[in-house]
């Protein structure tokens, strides 16, 4: 019996399962890229999902972006004050928010809000055989459920990130205005004078990557949920944890790559 067991696994059950998971995730991802370019496109469903996601995450992103803008400005003020350079605040905050904070804050919030709900939704569809039901009705559930949702997150999250940056800048403006009474026009002029096209471009590319990650991870975890109701909770939870983890890794990589582009 023991002999039989050791033969069956290359490493051990846990490690084997992990790498099988990697293989599955890889196949899932490549299937997405194969299916996304094939007809039918389910455009209506994509638009529906975009609205769903946007509305789900909008209030929280508004609040968080605003607070981040205010707090970040407040905290940066003293150190710039030492140099009498508070007039640099708008451009400093502008760069920080557009390049890094906006996309990252949005991605993390969406990982929590959107990723978990996608994981839970698909998870419950999986364990109640709704996905199988689609399959036997000759509807490709991967296309109808996964591709549309991943597309929706990849479209919506960049938009939300830009929106978050704007709200963050507005929060920053509120702080600057109360301290220096500068006008909103001069604030935005200052802020945008240092932001280059490349900043916005990398911000958008980054957010698309985050959107892809959140959508793919949420769908993957939900689509492969097992063990009934417990599996649904597990899928939602893992979707959040894994996508946040991947977002941080991507952040590091994208910053590195965009720095190559910036300086060469």
């Amino acid at each position: 019996m023991i002999n039989n067991n050791t033969k069956k696994y290359i490493f051990s059950r846990g490690i084997d399962d992990y790498f099988t998971g990697v293989h599955k995730a890889y196949k899932f991802t490549s299937l997405f890229f194969k299916e996304v370019i094939k007809k039918p496109f389910h455009i209506r469903e994509v638009i529906n999902q975009c609205f769903e996601i946007g509305i789900r995450a909008l209030p929280l992103i508004t609040l968080t972006g605003f607070i981040v803008g205010i707090v970040f400005t407040k905290q940066s003020r003293p150190s710039l004050e030492d140099f009498g350079a508070t007039s640099w605040l708008p451009s400093l905050i502008g760069i920080a928010i557009v390049r890094a904070l906006g996309p990252l804050v949005t991605a993390l919030i969406c990982a929590g809000k959107v990723g978990s709900s996608i994981g839970a939704e698909l998870g419950s569809m999986k364990v109640t055989e709704q996905i199988d039901a689609m399959e036997v009705s000759a509807i490709n559930p991967f296309k109808y459920l996964v591709v549309t949702r991943v597309l929706a997150t990849s479209i919506t999250i960049p938009i939300l990130a830009l929106y978050c940056s704007c709200v963050g800048l507005f929060g920053s403006y509120i702080n600057v205005h109360t301290e220096e009474t500068s006008s909103i026009i001069s604030f935005y002029q200052d802020a945008f004078s240092t932001i280059s096209f490349l900043d916005i471009f990398t911000g958008v590319v980054k957010s698309i990557a985050y959107g892809l990650t959140i959508g793919l991870v949420g769908c993957y975890k939900g689509y492969n949920a097992t063990q009934g109701t417990r599996g649904v909770g597990k899928a939602a939870n893992q979707a959040v944890v894994l996508s946040m983890f991947l977002i941080f890794i991507e952040e590091v990589i994208i910053v590195q790559v965009s720095n190559w582009i910036r300086y060469f």
Binding site: T128, E129, D132, A133, M134, V136, S137, A138, I139
Partner: peptide, 30 residues
């Protein structure tokens, strides 16, 4: 599969859709 009907043990109705949408869905999609 279009020529086969499969009735699930636990019904497997799409719980985000109402009865009408549940019934129309396989039809309009195919």
């Amino acid at each position: 599969r279009l020529r086969i009907g499969f009735s699930f043990q636990h019904s497997a109705l799409y719980d985000s859709m109402n009865v009408y949408q549940n019934l129309a869905f396989p039809l309009t999609m195919n």
